[in-house]
Each structure stands twice: as structure tokens, then as C-alpha cells.
Amino acid sequence: MNKISDFFSRTSRKRVLCQSFFFGAIATMGVISNTFSLGSKAYGQTPAPIANNTQINSYAQAVLAMEPARQNAFEEIKKLIGNGEIPKIVCNDSNSINGLPRKAQDIAVNYCNRSQKIVQDNGLSIDQFNKITIELQNNDILKQQVYNTLLRLQKSPDSP
């Protein structure tokens, strides 16, 4: 399988990869996120890290594996809807899916099911994946770790 980086010049590869992966990760969160509620927390002196290196690697592998399917689903739904704005699709929110035309609903449900399987096949629960995705929005250290892992996986000959 061709690597995404093969399609870009060396000068813009890093910038394009960064934008693509993080926009993809954020979009993926919107598509497969579960209701995420935080209960009361006991705060200690040092908060536990949201993810360890194994989880970060699994997260990055899942994002890379989901991205082509996400782009395909988005393009298919875009064709069906036409010039209209594509609404935010959240897998566990039936209202977000039910508001789509029937064929688009099928595409969204199929994508949600495939994404859930990809996440689980990469060793994470949906809750773990969603927690990391949410944390990426506010944690620059985690964002850099995921970014570096995505770059490393893209350079690796046996990447997904």
C-alpha cells in the first residue's frame, strides 16, 4: 500500500502530514465518540498520564487505518448530500445519523462499525480511544507524542 507521504514533496510532507493526521483524528473522534462523562476525580500531586507508549502507538495505528475509510465515507456522503453542509456524525447519537438520507445513513453506520473494529483490533477500547482523542485537544505533550508516532509509522516499511 502506498504511504500517504509518497504523494507529497519532501518540503511540504511534514506540514501536510501534521494537518492531515490531526484533522483526521479530530474528525474521527466526532464520528465514533461515545458519550463521555467524567465522574468526580481525586486529584493527587501528579496526575496519571492519559496514555502510555503502547496506547499511543495503538492509537496512531488505529488513526492511520481509519483515515482512508473516513475519507471514503465522507466523500460518498458528500456526493449524496450535494452542496449541502455535511452534519457532524456521531456513531452513538442516532439523531445525527437519522438526519441523513437513507443511503448516507448506511454509509455512516458501516463506517462506524468498521472504525470500532479497527480501534479494537489495534488493542484499544472505544473508551480509551475517545479519551486519548479528547485529551489531544488540550495536551500539547500528548499531541507531540502522537504526531511523532504517526510520522514514525509512516516511515516504517510495515506500517498499516
Score class of each variant (00 low, 15 high):
residue 24 G to V: 01
residue 25 A to G: 14
residue 26 I to C: 07
residue 26 I to W: 08
residue 26 I to F: 10
residue 26 I to R: 14
residue 27 A to K: 13
residue 27 A to V: 08
residue 28 T to V: 07
residue 31 V to I: 09
residue 31 V to F: 15
residue 32 I to G: 01
residue 32 I to W: 05
residue 33 S to E: 13
residue 33 S to L: 08
residue 34 N to D: 13
residue 34 N to P: 03
residue 35 T to A: 09
residue 36 F to L: 11
residue 37 S to N: 12
residue 39 G to N: 12
residue 39 G to S: 12
residue 40 S to L: 13
residue 41 K to S: 11
residue 42 A to L: 14
residue 43 Y to V: 12
residue 45 Q to A: 12
residue 45 Q to R: 15
residue 46 T to V: 14
residue 47 P to Y: 06
residue 48 A to K: 14
residue 49 P to K: 08
residue 49 P to E: 08
residue 51 A to I: 05
residue 51 A to F: 03
residue 51 A to R: 01
residue 52 N to F: 08
residue 53 N to T: 13
residue 53 N to V: 10
residue 55 Q to T: 06
residue 55 Q to P: 00
residue 56 I to S: 01
residue 56 I to P: 05
residue 59 Y to F: 15
residue 59 Y to N: 00
residue 63 V to G: 01
residue 63 V to L: 15
residue 63 V to P: 01
residue 64 L to S: 01
residue 65 A to G: 01
residue 66 M to K: 07
residue 66 M to C: 11
residue 68 P to D: 07
residue 69 A to Y: 09
residue 71 Q to D: 10
residue 72 N to T: 14
residue 72 N to V: 11
residue 73 A to T: 10
residue 74 F to S: 12
residue 74 F to G: 08
residue 74 F to H: 14
residue 76 E to S: 15
residue 76 E to H: 15
residue 76 E to N: 13
residue 77 I to H: 00
residue 77 I to N: 02
residue 77 I to V: 14
residue 78 K to S: 12
residue 78 K to V: 07
residue 78 K to I: 04
residue 78 K to T: 06
residue 78 K to R: 14
residue 78 K to E: 07
residue 79 K to L: 08
residue 79 K to V: 09
residue 79 K to G: 04
residue 79 K to M: 07
residue 80 L to N: 11
residue 80 L to P: 04
residue 81 I to P: 00
residue 82 G to A: 05
residue 82 G to I: 03
residue 83 N to S: 14
residue 84 G to D: 11
residue 84 G to K: 13
residue 84 G to E: 10
residue 86 I to K: 04
residue 90 V to C: 04
residue 92 N to P: 02
residue 92 N to G: 08
residue 93 D to Y: 08
residue 94 S to K: 15
residue 94 S to G: 03
residue 95 N to I: 00
residue 96 S to L: 01
residue 98 N to A: 09
residue 99 G to F: 02
residue 99 G to I: 13
residue 100 L to N: 01
residue 100 L to H: 00
residue 101 P to E: 04
residue 101 P to M: 04
residue 102 R to I: 09
residue 102 R to F: 12
residue 102 R to Y: 14
residue 103 K to V: 07
residue 103 K to A: 10
residue 103 K to Y: 03
residue 104 A to I: 00
residue 104 A to H: 01
residue 104 A to W: 00
residue 107 I to W: 02
residue 107 I to F: 09
residue 107 I to Y: 03
residue 107 I to A: 05
residue 108 A to V: 05
residue 108 A to L: 03
residue 108 A to C: 04
residue 109 V to E: 08
residue 109 V to G: 03
residue 110 N to W: 09
residue 112 C to I: 10
residue 112 C to H: 04
residue 113 N to S: 13
residue 113 N to I: 12
residue 113 N to R: 15
residue 113 N to M: 12
residue 115 S to H: 09
residue 116 Q to A: 12
residue 119 V to W: 00
